[in-house]
Simulated scan of single mutants.
Amino acid sequence: MSDIQDTIQEVIETAPAAPGKEDRLNSAIAIFVALSATFMAICNIKDGNIVQAMAQAQAHSVSKYSQYQSKSTKQNLAETTLALAEMQKAPEATLTHYRDEVARYEKEKGEILAEAKGLEEEYNQLNIHDDQFDMSEACLSVGLALFGITALTRKRWLLVFACCLAGIGVFLGLGGFLGWSFHPDWLAKLLG
């Protein structure tokens, strides 16, 4: 990212100064570059925080599924012990104890499974926002590169196109910041 910014800054600084319209074009390009790069940097920071939260949610989810598996194993042992106790006509107190154990493990498994699914949903929501920031950065990066080319070529239509790409990048970045569920799947697949 900094290589692109350095290159663009170099292009803007070395672009020939011309009076009138070209000065205004260079000024507009400089402003768009500064705004786009600043917004992209802020989005990058937020995206890093989201990636950390995603890793944490995934780790907690894996932990919950491990707990679920452990409870399933304990429940299976309690069910097997109950079946053996019933075959051996064990006292009712023993049978009641193992029936209670089986029921307790079943209840605990349900609670753990609900927590694990909640963590998966949290991960999926965070992933949507991570994708938004990734797409934002891609659009802003291309927009920044086009701003640099515009400074060299003086093509106003290229400035408009660069502004459109940067605008899409800003829209996607705002979606990530504001929690919008907007997610262009086709773009995510293209960049994925």
Rank of each mutant, 00 (worst) to 15 (best):
F133Y: 13
R156V: 14
E122R: 11
E121G: 09
A116W: 04
F161E: 02
R156L: 02
L144G: 07
A116Q: 06
E115Y: 03
R156G: 06
V142Q: 01
T150G: 07
E101A: 08
L165W: 04
K107L: 03
E121K: 15
D100T: 15
L126I: 06
A103K: 13
A116D: 07
T150R: 03
K117W: 00
I128L: 10
E137T: 13
G148D: 03
E92H: 07
Q88M: 11
S136Y: 05
R104M: 09
E86C: 00
L146C: 08
T94W: 00
G143D: 02
F147A: 11
T81D: 00
L165N: 08
L165S: 08
A103V: 06
P91K: 10
M87Y: 01
E108Y: 11
C164M: 10
A145H: 08
I128H: 02
P91D: 13
A85W: 00
A116F: 01
M87T: 14
Q125M: 10
L159F: 10
A138Y: 06
G118R: 07
E108S: 14
D134E: 13
K89L: 05
R156M: 01
A138V: 14
A116L: 08
I112G: 04
I112A: 07
W157T: 15
E86P: 01
A85P: 05
E115A: 14
Q88Y: 02
L165H: 06
V102S: 08
E92Y: 01
T150C: 15
Q88V: 09
V170Q: 05
A162K: 06
T81N: 02
G110I: 04
E120K: 15
T94V: 14
R104W: 01
L126W: 02
R104G: 02
L146R: 12
I128K: 11
H97A: 05
V102T: 11
Y123A: 09
E121C: 04
F147E: 00
E101K: 06
A151Q: 05
L158P: 08
Y98V: 05
A85S: 10
E106V: 09
E86Q: 14
